[in-house]
Design a protein around this nucleic acid. Structure first.
Lengths: 136, 136
DNA sequence: TTGCGTGCAAAGGTTTTGCATGGCA
DNA sequence: TGCCATGCAAAACCTTTGCACGCAA
């Protein structure tokens, strides 16, 4: 899973992502290690995060443009029948195990010649709790 | 609907958005008028687009940070349901007008208490061309 | 005349890139 | 040793802002 050399920086970043288990920005990572006596280069952080995203170890999601992207560790949880919802209100990431997305992928493949990558796709919306809040 | 002064620039921009009836970036707008003998200031374009978004005359789509936002005229008609696909290989943005995603939204709402926001959601995968390339 | 609109350039923020150095294997 | 990774600074990119001038009402 982890191609390339094993370095102190990579270990630090990945361990941090596992530990927080929440979405963080690249800047969060940089700040964390700067305040920690283990300063890392910004470029290193961006480059490694991008690599982790490619490997589907980390999920990246974007909000408004001009706003930092967020990264969150998702680990090796099994890929199949598993996709991600994120609440635009509370930022909560939901791991959805329902197989419905397979049908979506099939539809896109058959009708639009598009090979959906469920692991890289994030569905944005409002989660249960926030929907209820909105009704009050 | 159109508060403030009526100016040549505003008329030009709005007419252009109506005419293309597709999603365009701020840069598209600027380029169009520069190649047209009617150069407009970038700031003017951004400022007016933002105003149109506030007035719900224009929809704005945000994609990855660092990538230009897209704007689309919707006028008085209700926002047409369409979705965005992005190819992870070539980065191409595909505007999908198919109504299938409405069913996805319904599924998520009924089974997972999640209110999908189609405007914020981008599906990642491989587009037609890149799929073919991969087979070679 | 009043005050919003415009346009230029500069600033703002995030992310990427170039390049010399450092460190893994 | 060979090659990848790192880190710094600079660049690239989209977008916003400051400010003087222009123009609608």
């Amino acid at each position: 899973m982890n191609e390339g050399y094993k370095t102190k920086q990579k270990t630090l970043i990945l361990d941090y992502l596992k530990a927080v288990d929440e979405h963080v920005t690249a800047e969060d990572v940089v700040n964390h290690f700067r305040n920690n006596g283990n300063p890392l280069g910004k470029a290193t952080v961006y480059r490694y995060l991008e690599k982790l995203v490619e490997q589907n170890v980390v999920l990246k999601y974007n909000f408004a443009s001009g706003q930092s992207a967020c990264y969150q560790y998702i680990g090796e949880k099994e890929a199949e029948h598993h996709y991600h919802l994120i609440c635009v209100k509370c930022g909560n990431l939901i791991h959805e195990k329902c197989g419905y997305m397979d049908e979506v992928a099939k539809h896109l493949s058959q009708n639009h010649d598009f090979a959906l990558d469920p692991l890289k796709t994030v569905l944005y919306g409002e989660c249960k709790n926030c929907r209820c809040e909105a009704l009050k």
